[in-house]
Design a protein around this nucleic acid. Structure first.
Length: 163
DNA sequence: GCCAACGTTGGC
DNA sequence: GCCAACGTTGGC
C-alpha cells in the first residue's frame, strides 16, 4: 500500500524551482535533525508520493508533488565537520541521521496555499494544519491525499473550461 | 526523572 | 518583527 508524505522546505533554502533545475530533477532530502521526522524518513518506501511544501514564505503553500526514489540511507553530511548539518554524535558505524532521495513529479501551475488548505473539507486532522505543527517531514493520510488531488483536478477543469 | 531555560520553527 | 508552540539540553 502506497504511503503519502509532506516535505517542508523554506524556499530560500531549497525551493521547488531548485528541484526543477536539479540533475534528473532529483535531490537528497538533507538536513532533517528531528527524531520524529527522521523516523518518518526511515519508514518511506521507493514509490511513495509526497507534497512539496514551502514554509516561512508568503504565502506558505503546497507547490508540487514528489516521489521517493531512494529509501533511507545514512546522512553523510552529519559526518562532515565542515557541513552545516554536522553532528559529532552521528558516526558512520552508528549513523543517527538519514536521507532519502526524491524526484519531482510535477510542479503545480498554481500553488495551493495554506489558507486554501484550511478551507478544504476532510483535512481537519491533517498534520500540517495542526496548531503548532513544526514537523518538516510528516505523513499524509490517503484520504487527505485524495482530497487535495481531487481539488487539483477541479482546478484543472476550471482552467480548461472557463465560464 | 523532572523541569526550567534555551534555541528554533513558522504563521501571522 | 512578534510570539506561541515545540524539541532539546542539562542541572538537580
Amino acid at each position: 500500500m502506497k504511503q503519502y508524505w509532506l516535505f517542508k522546505s523554506e524556499p530560500t533554502t531549497f525551493s521547488i524551482d531548485d528541484l526543477v533545475k536539479s540533475p534528473r530533477q532529483t535531490t537528497c532530502w538533507e538536513g532533517v535533525r528531528n527524531y520524529q521526522a527522521r523516523n518518518f524518513l526511515k519508514s518511506m518506501k521507493v514509490g511513495d508520493l509526497g507534497f512539496f511544501y514551502h514554509s516561512n514564505t508568503d504565502p506558505p503553500a503546497i507547490v508540487g508533488i514528489v516521489q521517493v526514489v531512494k529509501a533511507a540511507y545514512p546522512d553523510c553530511f552529519a559526518f562532515d565537520s565542515k557541513s552545516r548539518y554536522f553532528d559529532p554524535r552521528s558516526v558512520p558505524d552508528v549513523p543517527r541521521w538519514f536521507l532519502v532521495d526524491i524526484r519531482l513529479v510535477k510542479k503545480f501551475p498554481r500553488a495551493l496555499s495554506l489558507e486554501q488548505l484550511r478551507g478544504i473539507n476532510g483535512l481537519e486532522k491533517m498534520e500540517l494544519l495542526r496548531k503548532g505543527s513544526r514537523l518538516s517531514v510528516q505523513p499524509v493520510r490517503p484520504e487527505e491525499w485524495q482530497r487535495v488531488e481531487g481539488l487539483l483536478q477541479d482546478r484543472k477543469m476550471t482552467q480548461s473550461n472557463p465560464r
